[in-house]
Design a protein around this nucleic acid. Structure first.
Lengths: 236, 236
DNA sequence: AATTTTCTAAACCTAAAGATTTAGATATAT
DNA sequence: ATATATCTAAATCTTTAGGTTTAGAAAATT
């Protein structure tokens, strides 16, 4: 099932620095009744101005281009907040590339090595508002995604060279308040201890984390995933 | 193509608080030569201790359970760092649930309404190290994923009530250095301006961001996605 | 029973941070 | 041409922050 609205074709812009390749794709797409390629772009900057001008339904974007790379291009296009949907067309099944493209809002991802009918299928799916990601690439994506999330968490606890593990409970409490922008006086009041005690704790924290001031301690804590899940809050 | 190693069956534990349902799944799976259900668990805590004990190849996990919910259970299981792969089995195609389950490392996700052969197919795929996520659920996932990422970025720029937009270029430069834990003196040296000028800028920044000190300013910046992409670095 | 951590707290000091006012120089816009 | 915004900088002052040493009490280890 394709588009129901036959009055207006789905408008596509092809972005590829290889002219022959772009022409091939253009002809392939124009064979289909539902689609028409309204423009070609040989590099990212031309592509962006064309997209601004014509606001196409779909952009077919090659990834390896001179000057501005595909990822940056996608990023800039999605900042325009148009209804234009991007399908990535590339030779590489690099998980990182897939992950970043999808993260930036690409609606489809196909390899150049894939059969041409898959390209049309992708157009069909994406023009219907779906996401098109072939199984192989989907697996690659999740590979990367789950590793990424795991690292985000493992950066926190269990880590051997995570100096946060050297902190005592009380020191963790103090650091937790520091990461909310609380002053020594504030910490003292909240923990019902004297200000000098807070200073003692803080100095111990600095030594253990090998930093020189509260800002660096806070940055260390955030980097190492201390207070990962709960959104960082600023105490007033 | 199923498993190549016929000498040892793939060992499965079923976690479902509905005993009848669990039994049904057990029988279904035991019809297959390659799999054997070695245990049932009616709640998450039992499940976790069984998994610790038997270290199964695959866990089929129901999501709506009493006491400890499925997401928490997955989280705890993945903290064990076993080779056990988790397949989620639930009645809901809630995007948030799918997203969180996959984020925590679930290798498959199927709806209870789906045909039984899909369950076996999921077991096949996952036992081969692949990820099994039916197209419908995959779309749901990406829906959520892309919205999530978009919000993370939009929290930064374009936001109306983002006070960071009020900062001048120079103030942004100063703030950027503050978020690296640089002192006033350090900022002065790096920007080739006097320390008092830095103080002026900093005070303006505080007023614009409506905060009282550098730590709060840094936290505000981080929360609003200032320095989103580049990993936070501590200057030494 | 003896030792080590941990939490508490003081005194004393220096350095850095932050608040406030004032002001000159350069742009940029109206 | 005259506001307006931005970047610069000084002087002055108060408040935190941070460094260092010392030390008592309680709890956990060995």
């Amino acid at each position: 099932m394709r588009r129901l609205d036959f009055q207006r074709k789905t408008r596509v812009i092809v972005v590829d620095d290889n002219y022959d390749h772009a022409s091939g794709i253009r002809e392939l797409i124009n064979l289909e009744n539902e689609y028409e390629v309204i423009a070609n772009a040989g590099n990212a900057n031309v592509a962006i101005s064309l997209i601004k001008k014509y606001q196409p339904d779909i952009v077919l974007m090659d990834m390896n281009m001179p000057d501005v790379d595909g990822i940056t291009a996608i990023s800039k296009i999605s900042e325009l907040n148009l209804d234009t949907r991007i399908i990535v067309l590339t030779a590489y099944d690099d998980p990182d590339l897939i992950f970043r493209a999808m993260k930036l809002g690409a609606k489809g991802y196909i390899l150049k090595t894939m059969a041409s009918h898959q390209l049309i299928h992708a157009l069909d799916e994406v023009s219907q508002g779906k996401i098109y990601l072939p199984n192989v690439l989907c697996s690659r994506f999740f590979e990367y995604f789950q590793n990424f999330e795991k690292n985000q968490q493992n950066a926190s606890y269990e880590d051997e060279n995570n100096l946060l593990n050297d902190l005592t409970n009380r020191e963790e409490e103090v650091l937790s308040l520091l990461t909310q922008g609380v002053t020594y006086k504030g910490v003292a009041q909240k923990l019902f201890i004297s200000e000098t005690t807070v200073k003692t704790h803080v100095n111990n924290i600095f030594q253990k984390l090998q930093v020189n001031d509260r800002t660096q301690a806070v940055l260390y804590a955030i980097n190492k995933g201390f207070l990962n899940r709960q959104k960082i809050k600023i105490a007033v």
